[in-house]
Design a protein around this nucleic acid. Structure first.
Lengths: 109, 109
DNA sequence: TTCGCATATGGCCGTATAGCCATATCGCCA
DNA sequence: TGGCGATATGGCTATACGGCCATATGCGAA
């Protein structure tokens, strides 16, 4: 096996981003932000959890570098910082769609 | 806020994929598999953890639909099932690079 | 079939995460 | 400045995850 060239630290950084993506509520938030910026109150209503919970989710997404917040009066408007999510999920969703078939094939062996 | 059209189940499926990506060792494994298929023994050496630990990591990746295993004799060769990871991380790594600057900007306000 | 290597699984423990409630902070406005 | 709505943070508990060891399973060779 060839010597690995990628430093371990990079995998840790990436893992942090992936962790931020690893929750349905946060993915729902990101999905909403694809459309337009939203304030915390809107996102709280969307997710349907406690406001403090949503605030923590946003904090996770922000510290992962995926979103940014901009205060305007008493509201904070969050928006996406990255453009690659949509394309990524398109690809992944395709894999998920094929998943049933793949498993069926795997069972045949 | 416009009514959400994406079903919650999809976010849960995506979250499962993201969870699978949310560990440096698993990312290291995926990175190695970009290059070529590898057997468990090779990946165990690469990761530097217990064989049982690596096997569990592989199981997580497999059930997320990201890799597939193919037994050949007593070895099992794992390979990627998806092609979108490389591009995704390219984009994300870019964000991570800018992260320092972004934070510096954020502090200025 | 029996042994031995490669891989998978079960069990256990320590740590991390999500959730809520309570409360602190921030900005506006009177 | 004091009060109020919006957002963030601290504290707590329950659950999930990662790690290892021990052990089970799969497969080829003798």
């Amino acid at each position: 096996m060839r010597k690995r060239k990628t430093p371990y630290g990079l995998f840790e950084s990436r893992a942090k981003v992936a962790k931020a993506l690893a929750h349905p509520s946060r993915l729902m938030i990101l999905d909403a932000l694809e459309e337009a910026p939203h304030c915390v109150c809107e996102l709280t209503e969307l997710v349907g959890a406690d406001q403090s919970t949503v605030s923590k989710h946003l904090s996770v997404l922000k510290s992962a570098g995926l979103i940014q917040g901009r205060r305007e009066g008493s509201l904070v408007w969050y928006s996406l910082s990255v453009s690659c999510l949509k394309g990524f999920w398109n690809c992944i969703d395709g894999v998920l769609k094929n998943d049933v078939d793949v498993r069926r094939q795997a069972l045949k062996k």
